[in-house]
């Protein structure tokens, strides 16, 4: 890592506001390796401070986000990546909510489509504005059974 050593020499160069924001955003996604689940932007220990300085320097040197993340992953393990990469096992993680969304949507669509005959639109305004009485509703439902389904 000769590049890094040379970077350390020129120390924390002044970052433009955009670069500082970028460094902050990257820092949010890097976990402090020795604390319980805190990103290095929140943690106050020396290691986090060093890592944060490292991030700023690399941002100043114009490295891309991906390069910076893989640098830290190589150094401290994938464990420090709070924004897990969307590849390998990470695909399972990122895919699960999408799969749930798709499967749930499909089930819901199937369920709502099961309704074959169109019930005439009942305006329930009167019923709606009465204070709701569940027992009354139950009685109504039972008495109406068979008639309304047609």
């Amino acid at each position: 890592m000769p590049l890094v050593f040379s970077l350390v020499l020129c120390s924390a160069a002044a970052l433009t506001p955009e670069q500082a924001a970028r460094a902050e955003a990257i820092g949010q996604n890097l976990r402090c390796p020795i604390c319980t689940g805190e990103p290095i932007t929140q943690s106050t220990n020396d290691l986090s401070r060093d890592m944060m300085r490292d991030v700023r320097e690399q941002v100043a040197a114009g490295r891309t986000d991906a390069e910076i993340y893989s640098y830290f992953a190589a150094r401290y393990g994938n464990f420090v990546l709070l924004n897990p990469p969307r590849e390998g096992v990470g695909l399972l993680l990122w895919g699960a909510p999408l799969a749930a969304l798709g499967a749930g949507g499909f089930v819901l669509w199937r369920f709502l489509r099961r309704r074959t005959t169109a019930t005439p639109a009942v305006t329930t305004a009167g019923e709606e504005d009465d204070p709701y009485d569940p027992y009354l509703a139950e009685v109504r439902r039972r008495t109406r059974q068979g008639g309304e389904g047609a």
């Binding site: 949010q28 996604n29 976990r31 689940g37 990103p39 393990g77 994938n78 464990f79 420090v80 990546l81 709070l82 924004n83 897990p84 096992v89 990470g90 993680l93 990122w94 909510p97």
Partner: peptide, 14 residues
């Protein structure tokens, strides 16, 4: 071994 972390970036995305 502990090899992954899931942070706010994942949760916020959804």
């Amino acid at each position: 071994r502990r090899d992954t972390s899931v942070g706010p970036a994942f949760y916020n995305a959804f």
